[in-house]
Amino acid sequence: MIEIEKLKFGADGLIPVVVQDYYTKKVLTVAYMNRESLEISIKEGHTCFWSRSRQELWRKGATSGNVQRIVSITADCDYDALTAQVIKNGPACHTGADSCFNNVIYQNEQKNPFSLNALYKLIEGRKTDKLEGSYTTYLFEKGLDKILKKVGEECTEVIIGAKNDDNAETIYEIADLTYHLLVLMVERGISLSEVSDELAKRHVVDKKVKQETSKTQ
């Protein structure tokens, strides 16, 4: 672990911090810290930045509740930039988005990896901008009962695939189930980040339980 004295703050007394989701590794935002805000972040275990626009300390989530619990802070090879891995509680962006980085400037079509976020956005678009002939649009037009019926059917198909000891079939059906769950989430207005945050909370609770159990043994 390095000492803060080794860090190279800029002429304005600031150092850039790339904030990254601990679980997904997604970049959430880029902010700045001065020595005081870094020391507060380390002491309190939650991100505290320096707001360049307001010229004051900015404890992330102080008003919104969208705090970021720090897992680690790492310096680069020149000690003039930081990466903070965090477990976030709610959106990272002031717009309410999961991340500040959502505006695609360039995308290599030959290197366009699949992501649940991209699929969620596509499904979301099928609800707001209906496409004739689209199965997803059809589900939204039929409504919640139809979507729930499909989720139930796909759950059964996953069980059958697993009971048949057929991994290929099980994977196929899990993919179908995942898609229909995403449709249900969009229909109910549930975001991926809300599910991710719920899982993160359970993970933290599990660790605490294990720690408490080990102490009593």
Rank of each mutant, 00 (worst) to 15 (best):
D166E: 05
L144W: 08
I190V: 15
E109A: 11
V158H: 01
N164P: 06
S115A: 03
V183S: 05
K146Y: 11
E187G: 12
T136F: 13
I171R: 00
L184A: 10
N112A: 10
F114M: 01
Y135Q: 05
T178C: 02
I190K: 08
H180W: 13
A175W: 00
T137W: 15
K130I: 11
D176N: 14
D129C: 15
M185N: 07
S134Y: 14
L122H: 11
E132V: 15
A168M: 00
V158A: 02
I171H: 00
E153G: 03
K150M: 14
K142L: 11
A118P: 13
Y172N: 00
F140S: 09
L131T: 06
A168V: 07
L177D: 00
R188A: 14
T156R: 03
L192W: 01
E194G: 08
E132L: 12
A162E: 02
I190Q: 08
K130D: 03
I190Y: 05
I160S: 02
L122S: 13
E153Y: 03
L177S: 02
C155Y: 04
G125T: 15
E187Y: 09
S115V: 15
E153N: 07
G143Q: 10
N117C: 13
E154Q: 08
G152Q: 08
N117R: 13
T128A: 06
Y120P: 04
E153F: 04
K146E: 13
D165C: 06
V183K: 07
V186P: 14
V195T: 02
Y138P: 07
E141R: 02
S134F: 15
T156S: 09
K146S: 11
T170R: 01
G152E: 10
G189C: 10
N108F: 11
K150L: 15
Q107R: 13
E169D: 10
I123T: 08
V183A: 06
M185I: 05
K127W: 15
E109C: 11
E157H: 12
K163E: 15
K142F: 08
E109T: 15
Y120M: 07
S115D: 10
N167P: 12
C155G: 04
E169T: 08
C155R: 04
C155M: 12
Y120H: 10
I159E: 04
L139C: 13
T170C: 00
V151K: 03
L181T: 04
L116F: 15
T136Q: 08
K150A: 07
Y172G: 00
Q107G: 12
T128Y: 03
V183N: 06
V158L: 04
I147T: 09
Y172W: 01
Y172A: 00
E154A: 04
I123A: 05
E141V: 02
V195K: 05
L131W: 09
G133A: 12
L119R: 07
K130Q: 14
